[in-house]
Design a protein around this nucleic acid. Sequence first.
DNA 1: GTAAAAATAGCACGACCGTTCGATTTATCA
DNA 2: TGATAAATCGAACGGTCGTGCTATTTTTAC
Lengths: 237, 237
Amino acid sequence: MSSQPPAKRLRSDSAARPLQKGQQTKAAIVDAALGLATQIGLEGLSIGALAEVMQMSKSGVFAHFGSREELQISVVREYHARFEDEVFYPAMAFARGLPRLRAMFDNWMKRTSVEIDSGCIYISGAVQFEDRPGPVRDALAGSVNTWLSAMRRAIEMAVAEGHLHPGTDAAQMAFEIHALILALHYEARFLGSPDSLQRALTAFDGIVGRFSTAATPVPETPSPARSRKTTRVATQG
Amino acid sequence: MSSQPPAKRLRSDSAARPLQKGQQTKAAIVDAALGLATQIGLEGLSIGALAEVMQMSKSGVFAHFGSREELQISVVREYHARFEDEVFYPAMAFARGLPRLRAMFDNWMKRTSVEIDSGCIYISGAVQFEDRPGPVRDALAGSVNTWLSAMRRAIEMAVAEGHLHPGTDAAQMAFEIHALILALHYEARFLGSPDSLQRALTAFDGIVGRFSTAATPVPETPSPARSRKTTRVATQG
DNA sequence: GTAAAAATAGCACGACCGTTCGATTTATCA
DNA sequence: TGATAAATCGAACGGTCGTGCTATTTTTAC
């Protein structure tokens, strides 16, 4: 705490020079590990395979983390950071209430539609660590809970703004939205159903309609095209 | 095809005498394997661990299947059979339309609420085999697709019976119901949220309400207790 | 340039994995 | 009961895994 190493002085060019060679390769390793983990899951991540990708020796990779568990945790942290950068922060630029909530869902969907090909460690990790207590599971669950809490807060704001019914149960609505992402992943990635993306969008409108204060007459024929500009996700960013 | 072994003649007591000693222990092995696979997933299933549970030698267990893959397929088939017996067939006793659809969902929920403690190989298997083509993946996907098709058929019957809107997209509604089960599993089993069961029930009513022909005025305050007898799942069987 | 420090490589260990094969026990049936 | 077939065992093989050690190379700091 008090023994800041004085050797940390800057050299010449920039203020911090944050990346000693070690940190730099460590970041590259984590990046490669993230790529592997999204496909095979955190549990399938092996140091040998990672070393091969990095063209390094196993021990060279290993030395950066000290244990496989620490490597997995680093991957979870990196994934969390990227998720926030891609999904959470851009949505904060939208007006509080329904616009922001929609933006959060749209960004989430956009990321998920990419992950249909690659995979999502929040989902594979949940399966692989649901019976395995420990720091990896804690990191995963903490990260997911952070995001779900943000969703709930956005919903509560939409209630406060008068966009959603006053009695709206934010946790209930967040549960239903979360469910859509999980089903999209399952049916598109595992079963290969091509229409899943549109299904999730349609369902989101249904959920919002159920909780919304806007006039939502019961449609005679519930059509997917009711209030959906089908290009919304693609055009949002 | 034409060389039915004539040694299959019956002996004395009953018609078939289906269980030579081998088939008997094989069934016991599959049963134990199913117990292990639900917890650790099909991919975590190891012959060594299975042999220990069975108090047999590794090679003794192995000989019944010839390969690990065949063992996994046997487990999937057994799981499929039990799922049908617990969820599908009992619901067939209900009247076509909404009653049967509700029974299917209720049975599904009942099973899922048990699997919150044990696990579900349709979910863990999806994660573990989504990038691994082969007979195990095919068995899994085929089994899931069979069930989802049954759900869609039940929905279409409910439309035909006039219980749901004529324009109802059965695949859409099945997608949304499937999503609830996945979210229940995720939030209850992984995150440990205690209210997830009630959340899924509430959401199901919301979905049915959106597609139903029954009078469903937009509720001022969408209350979970609206049309829900909270003991429905428990009392159905 | 040189000495200290950090990063990386090489190698080996023990553990577990699925699988093979020959020996041995157990069940089956005339 | 005795012959035959089925079931099970025991030991071993090649492989991958995470990890711990000791060299060696590369980077850093003066």
